[in-house]
Design a protein around this nucleic acid. Structure first.
Lengths: 199, 199
DNA sequence: TCATTAAATGACAATTCGTCATTAATATAA
DNA sequence: TTATATTAATGACGAATTGTCATTTAATGA
C-alpha cells in the first residue's frame, strides 16, 4: 500500500542527490563551466534523466540557492532568538549574514547570482519559496526594529521597514566585495550607530 | 601620409558603432538573449568581423560597462566639485549614483553584472581601465571624507577609507533593489547620519 | 597597373542545450 | 507466476550558438 509513498521518497532522494552533485560542481567551477553532461556523469545518470527532475540547468541552480536560503534563514533565527534587546537582535542578525558568508561562500554567491538573474515566478514557480523564505527573514529584522523602538534601544525616529531593508541590503553588498574581517566589523558598527538610541 | 591615422580613426569608429548596436540590444533584451548574429545583422557586418574588433561577446559587454563607468565617474566629479564641505560632497556623490541609476539604467545593470562576473585582467586587459576609473571615483570620496574630518563636518573618529568603501557599496546595493525615490532618500540620510559630526 | 597589405566574409567544427521516441524496470492484477 | 500497465531512464537527435580560419574582397602605394 505504501508503494506510492516509497516511490515518492526515492524520487525526493534522487532529486537531492542531483543537487548534491550539482552544487559541488557549481561551487568549484562556477555556473558556466559546468555542463548538464558533467552533472549526469557524476550522478551516474543519463543527461535526459536530469530533465525528469528539473526543468533545466537554471532550475537546478535555484534549488541550490533555496538550500542556502534555508540555512541563512536558520542563522537569522538564531540571532533573533539570542539577542535580548532590539538593537542586539539586529546586530546578531547582521553578524549572522557574515557568518553565513564565511561558512558557506558557495551558497552565498549562488544566492547573489540568482537574485541578479531575476527569475520570474511564471517560469520558475519555486521562486515563490524563495520569496517566502526571504519574507520570513525580513520579518525578523523588522520585529527587532519595532521592539528596539518600543524599548528604547533604537532611535524612535527610525522608520523600521525602510531601515530594515537598507541595513540588510547594505550588509549584503559589503560582503560582495570579499572584505577583510575588520571592514565587516566596522560596517556593522557604522550601521548600528545610525540607528542606535544614544540619549 | 595620414592614411594610417585615418585607418585608425575608422577602426575606432567601427568599434564604436558595434558598441552602439550591442548596447541597444543588450539593454533591451539582456545579455543572454542577444546573439553575436543579432549584433552582426544590426551592424551590417558578418559575424566573423565582430571578432576582429572584440575578443568575444564578454569583451563587448565590458566595453559597454566602461562607457557607463566613464559617465558615472563624470557625475561623481560634478558632485565632488559642487559640494562646499566634505559632508556635502559626500552627499552629492551618493546622489550622483542615484542620478546615474535613473538616467542610465542599462549601464547601471551592465556595470553590476560585469562586477559579479569577476573578469580577470589576464583574459581581459581592459579590466585595468575599469579598475583605474573605479579608483579615480573612490579617491574623490576619500578626499571628501578627509576634508570633512579636517574641517569638522565629518566625525573625527570615522575611518575615511573604510567608511568611503562601505558607503559606496551600500548605496549600490540599495539601488540594486529597484527602490522607490523615498527609500533612496532615506538611505542617504541614514548613511550621512552615521558619519556626520553633530557636536 | 599590379603587388602587397588590411579588412571582411561565411562555412566549419565544437559545444551544449532541451526533447522525445524507445527501452528498461517496477508494480499490479489475473 | 505470468501478463499487463505504469513509471523511470536512456541516448540519439535537432537546434542554437560560439569562436576560428582559409578564402575573398578592397584599399594602398610603388
Amino acid at each position: 500500500m505504501s508503494t506510492a509513498a516509497r516511490r515518492e521518497r526515492e524520487k525526493e532522494k534522487r532529486r537531492n542527490d542531483i543537487i548534491d552533485v550539482a552544487e559541488r560542481l557549481f561551487f568549484s567551477r562556477g555556473y558556466d563551466n559546468v555542463t548538464m553532461e558533467d552533472i549526469a556523469r557524476e550522478t551516474e545518470l543519463a543527461r535526459g534523466t536530469l530533465y525528469l527532475y528539473f526543468k533545466n540547468k537554471d532550475d537546478i541552480y535555484i534549488a541550490i540557492a533555496i538550500r542556502g536560503l534555508k540555512i541563512l534563514n536558520g542563522l537569522f533565527r538564531e540571532g533573533y532568538m539570542k539577542g535580548n534587546t532590539g538593537i542586539e537582535k539586529i546586530k546578531l542578525m547582521l553578524l549572522a549574514v557574515y557568518d553565513f558568508y564565511r561558512k558557506y561562500p558557495g551558497y552565498y554567491t549562488t544566492i547573489g547570482n540568482m537574485q541578479s538573474r531575476g527569475f520570474n515566478k511564471e517560469d520558475y514557480p519555486e521562486m515563490e519559496e524563495v520569496e517566502s523564505i526571504h519574507g520570513d527573514s525580513f520579518r525578523m529584522v523588522l520585529d527587532a526594529f519595532n521592539m528596539g523602538i518600543k524599548k528604547g534601544t533604537v532611535r524612535s525616529d527610525v522608520d523600521p521597514a525602510k531601515a530594515a531593508f537598507i541595513l540588510t541590503a547594505s550588509m549584503q553588498s559589503v560582503l560582495n566585495t570579499s572584505p577583510a574581517d575588520e571592514l565587516v566589523e566596522y560596517a556593522v558598527d557604522m550601521m548600528l550607530r545610525s540607528i542606535e538610541d544614544t540619549k
